[in-house]
Amino acid sequence: MINGGTSLLGLLGNPVRHSLSPVMHNAALESMGLNWRYLALPCKTESLDLVLQGLRAVGCQGLNVTIPHKQAIAELCDELSPLARRLGAVNTLVPGVDGGWYGTNTDVEGFLAPLGANEDWAGRDAVVIGCGGSARAVVAGLQSLKLNTITVVGRRSEALQAFNTDLQQDNAPLTACLENAPQLKEAVAQAALVVNTTPVGMAQHGDPKAMPLGAELWSGLSPKAVLYDLIYTPRPTSWLTAGQRRGHRCIDGLEMLVQQGAASLRLWSGRHDVPIEAMRSAAETALAT
C-alpha cells in the first residue's frame, strides 16, 4: 500500500509502456517487504538531465535505463563502474553518496544467464545485430565465452567503427559488417549464435511482424544455430517464431530482463535475498494476460 513513507524506483526510456519491469519489480518489492514502488517513466532524450536531477532531489532509490538512453545517460552520471565505463552504456543508476548518480551495467550478467553455464561456446562464431547500448553489453558478455569471432551488424559505418574501436579485445575479435554487405550471408551461415539487440519486431515499435535484416537472410542459418532476441513483447517475436519452425533453439529477452533486474535490485537494496522466481512468475503472468 502506498503511503507517506513509500519510496520510488523507476525505468527511464522511450517508449516504456510495453515494459514488464514494473510488474516484475513490484512483485519482488512486496515479497521483500520493502515500502518502495517501481514505475515506468517515459522520458525524451533532451529531458534526461532535468529528470535525473529531479528524481535525485526527491529521494528516488534507483533507476533502470532502457532504449534509447543507455549511452546518453552515461555522460550524465557523476561516477561510472569500470564495466559501464568500458561499455559507454548504463542500464542501472544508484544514488550517489554525495548526490548525483552512480551508473553501472547489469545487462551483461542478465544476458549471459540463459546461455547456460555448462555450454561450451569456445571457438565458435557469433553475429550481433545492432550496435547500440544493449549491443555493447551483449558483446562484452560474448567476449567472456572465448568465441572465435563476433560479427557486429549495423546500418551506419561510422557507428560500427566506433563500436568496434571501443570494445575490441584480442580474445574474441570483432568484425564490423554493414547490413547490406555481401559478407553478411557468410557470417550468418557460419554463426553458432545470432543475437538481435535492435527493436525490430517489438510490439509498439513499428511493424511487430518485421524481422531484423529481413526474412530472406535467415534461410542460410546452420540448423544448430541458436537465436537470441532481446525483445520479449511479443513473445515470441516473428523472428523467433520462424526460427522455431526451422528447429532452432530460440531464447527471448524475458530471462535477461529478470536476471538483470534482480542484479539491479540487489544493488539498490543492499540485499541478496531478491526473489527471482517471484519476478519471473509476475512477468510471465503479465505477458499471458
Rank of each mutant, 00 (worst) to 15 (best):
G4Q: 10
S7M: 12
P15I: 08
S31R: 15
S31K: 12
L34H: 05
A40I: 11
L48D: 07
L52P: 02
Q53S: 15
R56M: 13
A57T: 13
Q61R: 15
T66L: 04
C77W: 01
D78C: 13
L80I: 07
L80W: 07
S81F: 04
R85L: 11
R86M: 08
R86Q: 15
G88C: 11
A89H: 04
A89W: 03
A89G: 10
V90Q: 03
T92V: 13
V94Q: 07
P95T: 11
P95S: 12
G99S: 10
G100V: 06
G103S: 10
T104D: 14
V108Y: 01
E109R: 12
P114F: 07
G116L: 12
A117G: 10
N118T: 15
A122H: 10
R124T: 15
D125M: 05
G130C: 01
G130H: 00
C131R: 00
C131D: 02
G133D: 01
G133H: 00
G133W: 00
A135E: 00
R136L: 00
A137H: 03
A137S: 15
A140C: 14
Q143R: 04
S144G: 10
L145A: 02
L147E: 05
L147R: 04
N148W: 05
G154P: 00
R155E: 09
R155H: 11
L160E: 06
F163P: 01
T165L: 13
L167V: 03
C177Y: 06
E179A: 09
P182Q: 09
Q183A: 12
K185G: 09
V188A: 03
A189C: 08
A189K: 06
A191K: 04
A192Y: 05
N196M: 04
T197A: 05
T197M: 06
M202K: 13
M202R: 10
M202P: 07
G206P: 10
D207K: 09
D207F: 11
P208Y: 05
K209H: 14
G214A: 10
V226T: 15
L230K: 02
T233W: 05
P234I: 06
L240S: 01
R245V: 14
D252P: 03
L254G: 01
L254V: 00
A262Q: 04
L265Q: 01
L267Q: 10
R271C: 11
V274C: 10
E277F: 07
A278G: 06
R280L: 15
S281I: 08
A282M: 12
A283R: 03
E284Q: 15
E284T: 14
